[in-house]
Amino acid sequence: MKPLRASFRFLAVGIAVLIFAAAISFSVSISAAEKPSAETTAFAAPSTGDGALFTAFVSVLRHPRCMNCHSRGDFPRQGDDGHPHAMNVRRGPEGHGVTAEKCSTCHQDHNLGAHLPPGAPNWALPPPATPMIWQGLTDAQICRSIKDPKQNKNRNLDQLVEHLTEDKLVMWGWNPGEGRTPIPMPHEEFAAKVKQWQAAGATCPTETGKRAKLDVPGQ
């Protein structure tokens, strides 16, 4: 009887070891599945559902460096508080200002330094036919408007992503010159998030998204 009891004991210990090893292995594989790959870790959005990939970068679109030209009214705005542009500057028939007060009257294709007009190539507002106003819109509404060719100067998704990530006027937001707050999210991170959103189908959030912060009374 003794040898038989010993072999049962051996078998029981062996099964216990196997169960323990399997449990550890299963736990490790779950952790690996949950953890994003090294490639996506840096800019990963919290979730890919419900337009989350869009809301991951919409803060950039709401930043004053972008919103000052994407706000209500036929005029540009200035500063982090979005006050109307000095000198009664207007949008004009093509988004370049009017008569003797066009954007290029003062703005160059580059920044000039402290207390001087900022500049970038093609300094302008969106044209009046497609003013691309985001002020007061929810995340979902902003998302739909930038994707809509009737509102976005007939850009397809590739052209929209190119505008967002490569247009020199847009990229000025990260290098606005002395005395202006640059967009805080690094450009590389923003561009990666935009492309991640595009690759996942450019889904928009539902209507419950937050509204733009830049709401100037009476404008």
């Binding site: 009664n88 500057v89 207007r90 009017v98 008569t99 003797a100 007060e101």
Partner: peptide
């Protein structure tokens, strides 16, 4: 109004 829009910067 046109004059105001053109000349406010002067």
């Amino acid at each position: 109004e046109d004059i105001d829009e053109a000349m406010t910067g002067n």
